[in-house]
Structures are given as C-alpha cells and as structure tokens.
C-alpha cells in the first residue's frame, strides 16, 4: 500500500513540472510585470529598468522559471499590485470561505446523490426511478448559472429566506454567532450546487446497483440464505460504492474550481470571486498564483482518487 502511494506521488512530479511550465508560459505572455502598478508621471524610466534588472526580469526564461518555482515553494507569490497586499495574505483570507462552501456542498452532494440512486435502483422502471432519471438528465444539461439566478431570485430576493451576498453577517458576534451566520450564508449556494451536480454519483451508483444484482457474489449470498436486506447493503451496495469512492478526489476538485459562478452570482468572497476580480483588474500576480493553486489541487485530487481506490479495493493493491 505504501509502495503504491509512493509510486503514485512520484508520478505527480513530471505532471507538476509540465503544469508549472505551462502556467509560467501563460504568466510570461500576460502583459505587464510586478512594477506596472508603479507607473506615474514622476517615475524615471531608467529607474524602472534598474528595478526590473534587480528583480531578475532580464534573466533567461529558465533562470526565471526556477526562481519562480523556488519562491513558490517558500510561499512567495509576490504582491497584488491592485490591492497592494502579498498574494498569500489575499488567498488566505478567501481560502477559508471557499473551504466552508465546498465542504457543505460535498456533504449535501453525497446526501442527495446516494439515496437518489438507491431509491431509483430499488424501484427500477417505476415512477420514482423515471423521476430521478429525468431530474438528473435535466440537471446534466441545464447550465448551472441559470438555475443559480432563479434560486437567488426566488429564495434570496422574493421570499428573502436567505442572504443574497457576502459570507458572514457584520452584526454577528461571538464564535457561535459568527459560525451560525457563515453557515446561513452558504446553505443556499451549497444546496443548489449539490442538487445540480448529482448526475455523476447517481448514474454510477444506479448502474452499479443494477449490474451487481446479477453477479455471482450476490447469487451466492442469496443461495446461502443471507437476508435480502443484508444482501443489498453488505454485498451489493458496498461493491457499487467503489466507483463513487474512487471519484471522490475529482469531485472535490470539481466543486472547488466550479465555484467561480456561484461565488460571482451569490457575491460570496471566496477564491473563485478573487480569480474573477483579479482577471477583471488584470492583477497578474494573483492570477498566476491562483492558477498554480488550482492546478496543484487538481493533481492532488487525481492522486487522492487513486489512493482511495487502492485503499477500498484490495484487488488494485495486489496487482
């Protein structure tokens, strides 16, 4: 098991190298540099050239690339020239919010998706099954942002059950109060995203449950006289959950990087909104750091998925 994890993590190194090279190339293509924000009528152009040289912007690209990697490893991502703050501080402020939102979304997602698939598979071909199949094909096709707008319009503005922007109420006091307010702010967006993203879990689990019904291990259990309830949960369900477990890493990453729209529409100050606003203000240091963050996250998600698979499925460990 440890050997497998080590092997998988080592495989990440070439991927990481390729990804950082790509992001570095994009960053170099972006107009402007860390000193663009200091332009002013009083500025001496030769002074600017000296600053650029000192910062190493005249070095060959591979020197710059390795310096950039080295800085990133030490947590130095430069300063945001729009907000005049270190990028790390900015990201730190937003990361917490996005984690809270993603965490709630993930919990709701599995809370909705798994019972849906179980209900469907148990009633194959009946009304409940057709209902959830239709529901999932609609949520698969419809762009989430249109639904976000409807939800915001209905529950946010018209019924006024939930807040329409922000991540915490400024009046909230005390540890419990602040957290209750935070949770209150993420409920509407997280429930909406979760309800719209069940299609993957639903399809995999439903198909798995239906296929495994006729597998040898289920027939053997039935022949031995194992009660139906136990056959379903201990034999069929557990095996059908394997692809769901394996997909967990990708799912988390999808939720994290899918947050741009939700955060923009619900005006929720997380990483996605930071990315959106830094692109709008051409804040390149922030954009580069966020691309690196999301890129790294997706690599970790893929590794996590493989490790989970090896952990839950002994067959993978042996081969």
């Amino acid at each position: 098991m440890w050997k497998l994890i080590l092997k998988r993590v080592l495989l990440m190194i070439p991927q990481l190298l390729l990804m950082t090279l790509l992001i570095f190339a994009i960053a170099k293509l972006m107009p402007g540099d860390p000193f663009t924000g200091r332009f002013s009528p009083q500025l001496d152009l030769s002074e600017l050239a000296r600053l650029r040289k000192e910062a190493g912007l005249d070095d060959p690209w591979y020197v710059q690339y390795f310096r950039w990697i080295g800085n990133a490893l030490h947590g130095h991502f430069g300063d945001s020239y729009v907000l005049q703050k270190p990028v790390v501080t900015l990201m730190g402020e937003r990361l917490g919010n996005t984690i809270v939102l993603s965490l709630f979304t993930t919990v709701f997602l599995y809370l909705f998706g798994i019972p849906m698939a179980v209900a469907s598979a148990k009633n194959e071909g009946k009304f409940i099954d057709r209902f959830w199949l239709t529901f999932n094909s609609i949520t698969y096709g419809v762009p989430a942002l249109v639904i976000f707008l409807f939800v915001l319009f209905l529950f946010g503005y018209t019924l006024q059950w939930f807040p329409t922007s922000g991540s915490v109420n400024i009046d909230a006091e005390g540890f419990v109060g602040i957290w209750l307010s935070k949770i209150y702010h993420v409920i509407l967006p997280s429930v909406t995203i979760a309800a719209l993203s069940t299609v993957g879990i639903f399809t995999y689990l439903r198909t798995g449950l239906l296929d495994n019904r006729n597998q040898d291990f289920v027939r053997t259990a039935r022949a031995k006289g194992v009660p139906e309830k136990q056959i379903f949960w201990k034999h069929n369900f557990r095996n059908s959950m394997l692809p769901i477990a394996q997909n967990f890493g990708f799912q988390i990453v999808a939720i994290f990087s899918g947050s741009i729209f939700v955060e923009q529409i619900f005006n929720y100050p997380g990483m996605g909104l930071l990315y959106y606003s830094s692109i709008s203000t051409r804040d390149y240091a922030v954009i580069t750091a966020l691309m690196l963050f999301y890129g790294f996250l997706s690599l970790v998600g893929a590794v996590l998925s493989d490790i989970i698979l090896a952990w839950v499925d002994p067959r993978v460990r042996i081969s």
Partner: peptide, 18 residues
C-alpha cells in the same frame, strides 16, 4: 489525462484576456 486535469474554465478566461 494530464490536459483534462487543467482547470479549463480558468484557462479560457486567462487566454481570452491575453
């Protein structure tokens, strides 16, 4: 597989800006 790991939406946003 590697390219699929990249956050497509974000890259499109950046490339359109460049």
């Amino acid at each position: 597989e590697f390219l699929q790991l990249l956050p497509t939406m974000m890259l499109v946003m950046v490339v359109v800006t460049i």
